[in-house]
Nucleic acid binder design. Structure first.
Lengths: 160, 160
DNA sequence: AAATGTGTACAGTTTAAACTGTACGTAAAT
DNA sequence: ATTTACGTACAGTTTAAACTGTACACATTT
């Protein structure tokens, strides 16, 4: 009976925690899986995950792969166990923030470059002359984003 | 012919700029509409938007409403014009960053509270005792997020 | 008061993402 | 060498989001 209640409570925890994880651009499936794995705090098989979350094994396999690529979980080797085991990485804040900030800096930089290329086009072809100013403002916007997050990163890494 | 080329270039600009806007949690429709409006830099009717983006007027109406609620665009009144007019707000960086940071702080706070409530439940019912530690770590994670973004906000508002 | 123009609620459709079950390749166990 | 167990590619299905067209309410113009 306690066991029963416990299951419900754990499920609530997973749902609540995963909301935050979704803000770091995990999809719902990935977020719930990571939440479950982090709270379980031990190596888990695909079958464990599948049973606990009520999703297919294929789905777990897919999400586990994504989470591994994001370095949020890691494969674990255990002698005598045939099934693949995965465990959530610790240092929640460090890993999530780092990954997140990097994503912003990279994306913003790449989009800024795209816009600068367009700016040159406009200039050369003498098209849309009235739009050059506005475009420059948008590029400046990207510069500020980059700078802001780069600054965040520095601060973050000096903290921990 | 220049006009023709110009249209393509403007379209490229919209697509590139809107990628960045999507990172601020606008959906594609909202992002493209805002990009178009910002680059146009003048009051626009729903018909203008509809024609420029090749989407239905209903769709424009919906997106324009969302953008207004987000305070990213504003209704504009112009004597003698029956149609509703909207114009993109300036100060890109300030508005986007502020809104974005606030969203994080609020969401993180709310989710932290949810988790604290669950923690009390576990304690009272003496269920899942082995999970209390892990839950505490997750709550700590939320504290750090809150603190981090609150700090960012302060820094940001002191800048501009 | 009637007629026209405008924005949006709503139902239905299209489109894309998430998920599942089957089938198969690979590796371990017999 | 054969059998069994496991993970995942792939095709098909379910689910949810985005979009459209019609209809209507409200306001402005005749």
């Amino acid at each position: 009976m306690f066991e029963h209640t416990g299951e419900y409570i754990k499920n609530d925890m997973i749902i609540e925690f995963s909301k935050t994880l979704e803000m770091f651009d995990l999809n719902q499936s990935e977020a719930r899986l990571f939440a479950f794995m982090y709270l379980s705090n031990k190596p888990l098989t695909l079958d464990d995950m599948s049973e606990a979350l009520g999703k297919s094994k294929t789905s777990m396999s897919t999400s586990a792969r994504s989470l591994t690529e994001l370095k949020l979980i890691s494969p674990v080797w255990k002698k005598g166990v045939r099934k693949d085991l995965y465990q959530a990485n610790p240092q929640l804040f460090k890993i999530f923030m780092m990954t997140y900030i990097d994503k912003w800096v990279d994306a913003s930089k790449s989009q800024k470059e795209g816009l600068e290329k367009i700016k040159r086009q406009i200039h050369e072809q003498e098209a849309l002359p009235n739009m050059e100013d506005r475009l420059e403002e948008v590029i400046e916007f990207h510069r500020q984003i980059e700078q802001f997050f780069a600054c965040m990163k520095q601060e973050h890494s000096s903290l921990k």
